[in-house]
């Protein structure tokens, strides 16, 4: 598990920040060490020197954008969150606020989970879902309704725990290592092909789903992300984090805790 060294990480993050116009230095150190080792492995890069050469050649930036962010590895992770969304949050959103925002889509699992819930509640036709994604390969996968999945049994178990009337097969089909959702459900999804720090939706957002994304940030980046999202959405709209994430104390005046178990906040 020995990954790149501290100096490797400093060098690579500085270069990536320059090339991609995003600050990569404020992720948690242990995460960067782990994640760069993961990316090197995926890209078949032997060491940091080779990685730097490939970045400078411009060959791997798209692949980096695809592999670096951590996606959910299962559909309907934390079924109780999705049950609460269905029974407690959706009834509180008016028709004009049925606008959802995923500031960082790094796998389609959360997006597809939301679309199923909206369809079951017969709300999908009047909903709009914005997704910030900065990988062309990921965008293409989403347009095809495709998600890599080695956890089909877990997906099905999670779906069962939603206590919906519908069956899993109504929405998903499996083909080798991939799960496919019926693409009709994607008709009201609008993709923003840039990082959420650079571009945000123009609509009034009813709910922002940002679960388990700030786990990988250091304190400084989390502070900035919470404030940036706050400034991008309206007072009274909902923000959901992962069940083991919390708004930082420094930002407690920006959000009111709405559901402690599921870590859902309201913008104040």
């Amino acid at each position: 598990m020995a990954g790149p060294t501290i100096n490797d990480i400093r060098e690579v993050t500085a270069l990536l920040s320059k090339k991609l116009g995003m600050d990569y230095s404020n992720y948690a150190f242990s995460f960067l060490r782990r994640r760069f080792a993961f990316v090197y492995n995926k890209l078949k890069v032997k060491n940091t020197a080779d990685f730097i050469t490939a970045i400078n050649d411009g060959k791997i930036l798209e692949d980096f954008n695809y592999y670096f962010p951590v996606g959910q590895t299962e559909l309907f992770r934390d079924p109780s969150f999705w049950r609460n969304l269905r029974t407690r949050i959706l009834p509180k959103l008016s028709d004009e606020e049925l606008v959802f925002w995923f500031p960082e889509v790094s796998s389609s699992a959360e997006l597809f989970s939301l679309l199923v819930i909206l369809n079951e509640e017969e709300l999908i036709n009047k909903s709009k879902v914005y997704c910030n994604i900065n990988s062309e390969k990921r965008i293409q996968e989403i347009k095809e309704g495709k998600i890599y999945s080695n956890n089909i049994d877990i997906n099905k178990q999670n779906f069962k725990r939603l206590e919906l009337d519908a069956s899993y097969d109504k929405y998903f089909k499996e083909d080798r290592d991939f799960t496919f959702i019926y693409v009709d459900l994607l008709k009201n999804v609008e993709i923003i092909g840039e990082h959420y720090f650079k571009k945000v939706p123009v609509d009034k957002i009813g709910m922002t789903i940002f679960r388990n994304k700030m786990l990988y940030y250091n304190q400084k980046l989390q502070l900035n992300a919470e404030r940036h999202i706050h400034s991008s959405i309206e007072r009274g709209s909902f923000l959901s984090l992962g069940i083991k994430e919390r708004i930082l104390d420094e930002n407690e005046n920006y959000y009111d805790l709405y559901d402690n178990g599921e870590q859902i906040y309201k913008v104040s």
């Binding site: 948690a28 150190f29 242990s30 995460f31 782990r34 951590v70 959910q72 590895t73 992770r77 934390d78 388990n212 786990l215 990988y216 992962g242 083991k244």
Partner: peptide
Amino acid sequence: APSNYHMFVEFDATVSLSAEDV
């Protein structure tokens, strides 16, 4: 360590969690 999260110890004596793959 919480269910379904990896748990790490950071240099600043804090816990960090992760939903990375198993």
